[in-house]
Amino acid sequence: MSLSPVAVIGMHRSGTSCLAGCLEDLGLSLGDVVTSAPHNKKGNRENPRFWPVHDAVLARVGASWDNPPSEPVAWTAQERADLKAVLADYDPLPRPWGVKDPRATVLLDGWLEVLPDLRLIGSIRHPVAVAGSLTARNGYEQSRGFAIWAGYNRALLRWRDLVAFDVVDFDAPDYEARVRDAAQRLGLDAARPMPFRDAELNHQKAGGETPAEVADLWMRLSEIAR
């Protein structure tokens, strides 16, 4: 079983923090991550040192976390060196270790140049719930939330067409079983307790019809989730 590193990818507010935290319960080493935040009681499970690296790459191509690039992004040699400098912190960690920052979803070309053996696992969530979460946290109009959601999830699908990896629906009724199955395929201990997930922290529920502008994309994502 491979012990190569793992990246948790997916749109912001789409359960990536929950998935990373659950995988950490099952043995994935996350290193020095945020464990508490105003809009995420248990923390986003991200290493803040990745944020400026990703933000600089996005800014160079005229993008940002809430205006994701529509095409793959080629990294410069300096940007790859900056990423390697942060990844050096992970050398002492038990394997497999993992990372999570939604920005990586739209910047994976650089990551895979630096870590060709990087494995992926994705988290998806209904666009209505994500847009509602962005409205509550950032004050964004629903249409803007849908546009950001679509940008990230198109990137996720693009990679899913190229590389086989599990995609977990955050709101699936059998979420825990799906995470454990995926964890086993990642070489983690799927039988461990998994206390990180807390249904009471899910404040946005998906309901009603999927908006037309994102319906086809959500259908495709639903088809690959397991």
Rank of each mutant, 00 (worst) to 15 (best):
L112S: 06
S123I: 14
V73G: 12
V57T: 00
C18S: 15
A129V: 09
L115Y: 05
L221V: 08
H39R: 15
P96F: 06
G208T: 01
E200H: 12
K42T: 08
D66Q: 12
D101K: 06
L134P: 08
D55Y: 00
M219E: 03
W149N: 03
V34C: 09
L26E: 07
S222E: 02
A77L: 10
P173V: 07
R125T: 12
E200P: 05
L30R: 13
L112I: 15
R197K: 09
C18T: 15
T35S: 02
N153G: 04
L19V: 08
L83Q: 08
D109E: 12
P195W: 13
A88N: 02
P127T: 13
S143R: 13
V130G: 04
R158N: 11
L115P: 03
S14T: 10
T105W: 00
L83N: 06
R154T: 13
H39P: 11
C22V: 08
D82W: 00
D55R: 01
L23K: 05
V34H: 11
R95P: 03
L26W: 09
R185D: 03
N47V: 07
R197D: 04
N44I: 07
R45M: 15
K205T: 14
A37Q: 14
L112F: 15
E200R: 15
G132L: 05
A183N: 02
D181K: 11
D216Q: 04
N47P: 04
A212C: 05
R103Y: 02
K41P: 13
A7K: 06
F165I: 09
V33A: 10
T35C: 02
K205F: 09
H54W: 01
V168D: 01
M219R: 02
A129H: 05
R45H: 10
H12V: 08
A63M: 01
V6G: 09
A56W: 00
V6R: 10
S4K: 08
V53F: 01
V214D: 00
R125A: 06
L112G: 02
A215P: 05
N67W: 14
R185S: 07
D55P: 01
L30H: 12
P52Y: 14
P102H: 07
E79T: 00
N40Q: 15
V167G: 04
V214W: 00
A147D: 13
R49D: 01
S64D: 14
S36W: 14
A74F: 11
E141S: 13
P195K: 12
L26V: 02
S36G: 13
V53G: 00
P68F: 10
V33R: 10
G139I: 14
P5I: 13
H126A: 13
M1A: 14
I121C: 12
A136S: 14
